[in-house]
Amino acid sequence: MQLISCPWCGPREEAEYHYGGQAHVAYPHDVGAMSDADWADYLFFRDNPRGPFAERWVHAAGCRRWFNAVRDTGTHEVLAVYRIGEPQPELGTQASR
């Protein structure tokens, strides 16, 4: 049972969290002006890297706060967690609390 650090509550078992997909994919400003292709790209396409990946998680069984985490998809290691609105930390700086 992996531990994930909630930016508010600290380390908790992964079962307390829900996954929310890739982070930093903002809802487009003017969707009406988007081509079908651009909209489909927003809707269906996400990065799928091996290695560090910024993701949204929610501490569903805890404080119910959404936050961002950089997770290494190869090792599952959570390299950093940060609150919504905070910039993604530089990789390697171990900004994890």
């Binding site: 929310g20 809802y27 929610v58 569903a60 959404w66």
Partner: peptide, 17 residues
Amino acid sequence: AAKVLDWLEEFAQTEWP
């Protein structure tokens, strides 16, 4: 019920804070 609340919270917290 739980899924919808999570969904609404995601928008409230991340898209339209």
